[in-house]
Simulated assay, not measured.
Amino acid sequence: MGESPLSSELLRALRERLARGQFREALELCLESERDGIRLSAEAQLLAATAATRVGDLVRGSTLAAEALEGFRTRADDDGRMRATNLMGAISFERGLLDAAATSFTESLRLARQLRDSLMAARTANNLASVTHLRGDFPGALELYRSALLDFQRLGDRHFIAETYHNLGLAFRHAAAWQEAERATAEAVRHAEVVGDRALLALTVTGRAELKVALGETAMAVQELDRAARLAGDVGDELGGAEIRRIRALAALRDGNFAAAAQEAEAAHAVAQAQDSVLLTAECAAAAALAHRGLGRQELAERRHAEAVVGFRALGATKLLERLEEEWANSWPL
């Protein structure tokens, strides 16, 4: 059965908004349609779930993605199932549900290979690499990232080339492979600038800024963060904005400005917690713990430190936990 003219028009409008990075507008269009009594198709629900996820509304994104998946299953639509399952994996990853994320990505990869969808197979491998990386398996993550990058380069997809270089930059930074990290982050930004996607550019510029902080180049990092904040604001990316504030906190910590670090970390923590982002919440708590300790607020510092430890342990993020404990041991209360 074909789509109704109204459904086709809604899908066209949603795809246009997503292509322009107008994620909040796309989500509002879906909500308006539902209020008007229009039943969303599985494809429209998936697009709405994508929009919700991109603006940081993970709870709504998860609900919409699950509804879309059920709709695709009812229609025996393997392509739709593949895409919905991949998105559900991404949402689970952001919410700290790593086992669920790995299961979803593995299923999406199986469907991609079954359908011989090379692009989706590479995207899912890239996502699986992020789970592997967070769990501390750097060699395994590197192998998956490089495999995905080669596929994206063969397909000529600059958007996902930029994303994969961004992920490689994170992995190299965590491994203290500074030259490789600088090359990867530079490539990520370069490809994102060619694509012209503001959300993607915000992501890659933020990644380069965090590397600058790690290298002690805080003045340059702040300039990058100012640019990233404008871009994230343009597309209504609340979680992206919180990530930027977390890195501002790291820059302030590096400069010894504990008051500014505490303010930025706590503001980012509030957004991350409200949006149910377990990883970002734990990372913000870690930054806040160090800032409060520097200010002599030992009780609050201990509380945030304990929160971060619980979060990282729940995620299985062993490397992040080890780094926090090292920084905590080397910091001293006033």
Rank of each mutant, 00 (worst) to 15 (best):
Q45G: 03
L170T: 04
F172P: 03
F258L: 09
Q273V: 15
Q223E: 11
M1R: 11
R304K: 13
G294M: 00
F72T: 13
A125T: 15
G96S: 06
A282Y: 13
A288F: 11
E67A: 15
R73W: 04
G240Q: 07
A252I: 10
T106A: 05
E107A: 11
L253V: 14
L97K: 15
L6S: 00
V309E: 03
E325G: 01
R15C: 06
G256A: 12
F93W: 05
A287D: 09
V235G: 08
L280G: 10
G294S: 02
L215P: 01
D255Y: 02
A42H: 01
A177N: 05
Q45F: 00
A308N: 00
R12F: 09
Q273N: 12
V189L: 12
T63L: 02
D237A: 00
E180C: 09
S92D: 15
T124D: 04
V309H: 04
L119H: 02
T206M: 02
L300D: 01
A286K: 06
T53W: 08
R12L: 10
E107R: 07
E264I: 10
T206P: 03
R323C: 01
C30I: 01
F258Q: 06
R248E: 14
R158Q: 09
T103A: 08
Q273A: 15
L109A: 01
T74Y: 08
L18A: 03
W332Y: 05
F23V: 00
L128A: 13
R35N: 10
R12P: 00
T103D: 07
H269W: 14
L211M: 05
T164F: 04
G136K: 05
L64M: 04
R135M: 09
T103N: 07
A282E: 12
E143Q: 15
A65E: 03
L290R: 08
S118D: 13
L253K: 14
E326Q: 11
A141K: 05
R116H: 08
D197G: 08
M1V: 10
L203R: 13
